[in-house]
Design a binder for these strands. Structure first.
Length: 287
DNA sequence: CGTAACTCCTGATGGC
DNA sequence: TGCCATCAGGAGTTAC
């Protein structure tokens, strides 16, 4: 399930391979995913040049040299795959859209579960899905990281003041903070030793600050490892990420907590359900 | 308004 | 071995 690190890796892959290329043709194999794929897509993309790729939360934005930007969301199982034209083109199963460039590359959007989104908007206007999105968890400039961490903590401290929900569920809400999904929320809460069952409003400023630090640490480590590959997620070249090797709690119900072992404690990772989603945690470490 | 349940979908998994 | 129920979850929509 692609979250911020996975989407960031895909965006970088697209940027490195396709920036500057001109779109020659568009093959549409399906008219809808989660929403309808806009009818105007072929017209908007035809003969346009790709000038940049940007990530916002879990969205990828492909900016064109005309007035349009294409918005991609990978949903649960979406992939964006880039291949040179010399590998013979074959439509894969669940391939819904294919772009072909004059520079002889394919871009394929593949998504078995079809929770993904492909949409189009005018670059100078903001897409409606981006308007109410919360701030990015990472600073745009790594040197500003500490300052940004403080800013985010101030912001979240205010946001959490009247939030009665579990901290776990609040962190998953893209309108509060963008880019986090179940895996990285579980891992960040574990790292900051905060129970997923705490109510957001019960967190002190110091705890929120520590939580933001943990979120940033986890996300940066995950990006460095090329993201987490479970089933579907791969880079644009088809290679897998390996951050799943570094998970401490996610998917580890019944295994011993490694932090506890270091302190000569023995405790097993628990799994609970919150808002219909699994939460993995150590009830000895996380309070 | 805030909050929670519901919904979409396919593939992996486990029980019998 | 095959069949069926269950689960995974992002995020918009609906209901309260």
């Amino acid at each position: 399930m692609p979250e911020l690190p996975e989407v960031e890796i895909v965006k970088r892959g697209l940027k490195n391979t396709l920036t500057g290329q001109k779109i020659q043709s568009i093959k549409r194999h399906r008219h809808n995913l989660r929403h309808n794929i806009p009818i105007a897509l072929e017209t908007a993309l035809g003969n346009s040049r790709i000038i940049n790729f940007v990530r916002r939360g879990k969205y990828i934005l492909m900016e064109l040299d005309n007035q349009f930007t294409v918005l991609f969301h990978l949903g649960m199982s979406g992939k964006l795959i880039v291949q040179p034209l010399n590998t013979r083109y074959e439509k894969q199963i669940h391939e819904h859209l294919t772009l072909i460039t004059y520079e002889e590359y394919y871009l394929k959007f593949i998504d078995p579960r079809r929770f993904g989104i492909i949409d189009l908007f005018l670059t100078k206007k903001k897409h409606k899905l981006l308007i109410n999105m919360g701030p990015e968890p990472l600073a745009s400039d790594e040197k500003q990281s500490e300052k940004y961490c403080k800013e985010l903590s101030d912001y979240l401290f205010k946001k959490f003041k009247n939030k009665k929900q579990f901290i776990k569920n609040v962190l998953l809400d893209q309108h509060i903070i963008a880019g986090l999904g179940n895996i990285y929320v579980c891992e960040a809460l574990f790292l900051s030793k905060i129970s997923p069952f705490r109510r957001a409003l019960s967190l002190s400023f110091e705890e929120i600050y520590s939580l933001i630090q943990s979120i940033q640490t986890i996300l940066l480590q995950a990006i460095k490892a090329g993201g987490s590959s479970m089933r579907d997620y791969v880079h644009v070249n088809g290679k897998r990420g390996y951050f799943q090797m570094q998970w401490n709690v996610y998917g580890k119900e019944g295994e011993y907590c490694t932090f506890c072992l270091k302190l000569n404690n023995i405790n097993k990772i628990k799994r609970g359900i919150q808002a219909g989603r699994s939460s993995f945690y150590c009830d000895l470490c996380q309070k």
